[in-house]
Lab assay of single mutants.
Amino acid sequence: SKGEELFTGVVPILVELDGDVNGHKFSVSGEGEGDATYGKLTLKFICTTGKLPVPWPTLVTTLSYGVQCFSRYPDHMKQHDFFKSAMPEGYVQERTIFFKDDGNYKTRAEVKFEGDTLVNRIELKGIDFKEDGNILGHKLEYNYNSHNVYIMADKQKNGIKVNFKIRHNIEDGSVQLADHYQQNTPIGDGPVLLPDNHYLSTQSALSKDPNEKRDHMVLLEFVTAAGITHGMDELYK
């Protein structure tokens, strides 16, 4: 796709999030870079409003799984890469995230190029959380598991539907599940690639910047598309 050509090198990323969870309002600002050749993201996020009212790991899918245009699609799968094909005009990404036995996040993001920078601007609203639950009670460990993110075409809306389940580790050794339902639709009216069913395999590492006084998260992530085999004719070339 034409959009794919915008991702040949390292691309700067800007992320802006405004959130409200159970009436606790907050903002997060992030910057870093993405390299789609390797499916690599390096980002640093800062809570610009003081202390973040929710655990950082609960925002990873909104912040970095928010820029799935940096996923590495192998050559034989490039015609299934909706995310890059929607660029530079970008796409709207909407999600509902259900935390098992707790509340939910609803998010709406616009992901697009502004100049040479890929920008992810998000509004997040969280409701029905227990004040002493795993999320508002800050009981999650500061780490992140690997996940597969399942993608299918949504021809009606000229976009994709995505769903997956995140496993958050809790300090007591148990797990907090979070079910994600995602819809992506193009902002522009140019042609986009509608994929066959496949998935993104994601690995994320969270860390801290020892010199950063503000509440923050440093993230390194690798994302690769998989799940579609080479056609038989490919094998015999």
Score class of each variant (00 low, 15 high):
residue 204 S to T: 13
residue 72 R to L: 15
residue 20 D to H: 05
residue 226 A to V: 07
residue 164 F to L: 05
residue 231 G to R: 10
residue 129 F to S: 00
residue 234 E to K: 07
residue 217 M to I: 04
residue 34 G to S: 01
residue 154 D to E: 06
residue 45 F to L: 10
residue 209 D to G: 01
residue 229 T to A: 12
residue 182 Q to L: 00
residue 172 D to A: 06
residue 59 L to I: 07
residue 32 G to S: 00
residue 128 D to E: 05
residue 126 G to D: 00
residue 36 A to S: 07
residue 157 K to M: 13
residue 143 N to H: 04
residue 127 I to S: 12
residue 141 E to K: 08
residue 41 L to P: 01
residue 129 F to C: 04
residue 107 T to A: 06
residue 138 H to Y: 04
residue 206 L to R: 00
residue 145 N to T: 14
residue 101 D to G: 10
residue 143 N to S: 11
residue 235 L to M: 05
residue 231 G to V: 15
residue 2 K to T: 07
residue 132 D to E: 07
residue 16 E to A: 07
residue 18 D to N: 14
residue 209 D to N: 03
residue 200 L to H: 02
residue 218 V to A: 04
residue 22 N to T: 01
residue 132 D to Y: 05
residue 169 N to H: 09
residue 197 N to T: 05
residue 95 R to H: 00
residue 201 S to R: 11
residue 226 A to S: 07
residue 212 E to G: 01
residue 214 R to L: 06
residue 76 H to P: 04
residue 6 L to R: 15
residue 100 K to Q: 14
residue 115 G to C: 06
residue 185 T to A: 11
residue 127 I to V: 13
residue 155 K to M: 09
residue 32 G to D: 00
residue 132 D to A: 04
residue 217 M to K: 01
residue 51 K to N: 09
residue 70 F to S: 03
residue 18 D to H: 15
residue 10 V to M: 08
residue 5 E to G: 12
residue 138 H to L: 04
residue 210 P to A: 09
residue 79 Q to L: 11
residue 169 N to T: 14
residue 112 K to E: 03
residue 175 V to L: 09
residue 231 G to S: 11
residue 222 F to Y: 13
residue 44 K to E: 01
residue 123 E to A: 08
residue 148 N to H: 10
residue 181 Y to C: 11
residue 81 D to V: 00
residue 140 L to Q: 03
residue 91 Y to C: 02
residue 172 D to V: 06
residue 27 S to T: 13
residue 187 I to V: 14
residue 179 D to E: 13
residue 35 D to K: 03
residue 51 K to T: 11
residue 65 Y to N: 00
residue 29 S to Y: 14
residue 85 S to F: 07
residue 148 N to S: 05
residue 230 H to P: 15
residue 193 L to P: 07
residue 201 S to N: 12
residue 127 I to N: 08
residue 150 Y to N: 10
residue 12 P to H: 02
residue 187 I to T: 09
residue 15 V to A: 02
residue 190 G to D: 07
residue 22 N to K: 03
residue 7 F to Y: 05
residue 154 D to A: 13
residue 180 H to Y: 04
residue 159 G to C: 09
residue 52 L to M: 05
residue 121 R to H: 05
residue 60 V to M: 01
residue 83 F to Y: 14
